[in-house]
Amino acid sequence: MSLQKKLNTWKEQQFITAEQCEKIAAFERQRAARTFGRSAFIIAGLLIGLGLCLIVASNWHALGPVIKLAGDFTLLGGLFYTTFWCITHERKGLTELFTILSFLMIGATIGLIGQTFHLDGGWHSFATAWALLGLPFVVVSRALFFNVGWLCLFFSLFNNGWWEKIFDFLFDSFNTGTVSAVLCLCLLSYAGKKLDETAHPYTLLPKAFEKLAMWLAYLSIFGIGLRWGTSGWNHHLGTTLLANLVVFAFLAGRMFLAVQMQNMISFRRNAILTEIYIFILFASHLSNLFMSGVGFIFGGLAVLALIYVFKRTSLYIKNMEAFK
């Protein structure tokens, strides 16, 4: 039901007055316009910034290195000052635009310096410099995806074979360490959430950390499920059962927490993920069937059935006592 319909119902039921109804509608209209405006500024910032990076990276033959560097630093200084001006004059949309532009321009400048002096540092050195120098701009940004992006860049500093070791540890064998890693990610996410309660007015970095850690926990859980839970029913029954138990326990735990916190969206998301996982479990045993015409028809029908199940699940959750 749209907000306007809900407001009309509430007005008819005399839950709110006509004046309150008008005020709520006006507030929501303004908020929607603000969100759209901010998103547009963020997208514009990304496009312009990436364009600038590409122009700088194209290594113009016609311009000498001094002119290129002077031009780049002038632009960088201008962007930094404009960002500062936007923040001090409380221009929220423009702040997002120039924050992203400044951050991307720092990356472009590092690239240009590397290009001019023929530096042979790899991604590791580049990411270190970019993440550290760009930190002030990430701290002031209120765009969550930008903060998450910065965290990914920051964690790529540890890319000297560390990630390979972590993935080997996670997916080469299924043991208590694998489960502990997922639990650690959940704990890190919880720590991020707690930190966000204090830091939220100043920066979104703890919130971004919370989200990233939880996404990684989900990825790891599905990694475990797909690697160990869908195969080996005939050869490694114990491991397969245990892997599935871990996946379902994780999803059930998330649903339990969602009920405790009255978070219907989280509950619905996890319920749907559980259904998808069950579907994958069945589909993984029908891989040969999918290689035929009948298999394609069966696959299409299965997807339709899955959509129907999702709808029924959503409807059921909406009417659950726990969320009333």
């Binding site: 630093f73 960088l76 200084g77 930094f80 500062f84 923040i87 590092i110 310096i113 120098l133 760009g134």
Partner: peptide, 24 residues
């Protein structure tokens, strides 16, 4: 707050200029 912000924004610029000068 404005002064802290100004310092935070100036620092990356100064670092990049100093790095360029060192390399030169």
């Amino acid at each position: 707050k404005t002064k802290i912000l100004a310092v935070c924004f100036t620092l990356p610029f100064v670092c990049l200029v100093a790095w360029t000068l060192c390399l030169t």
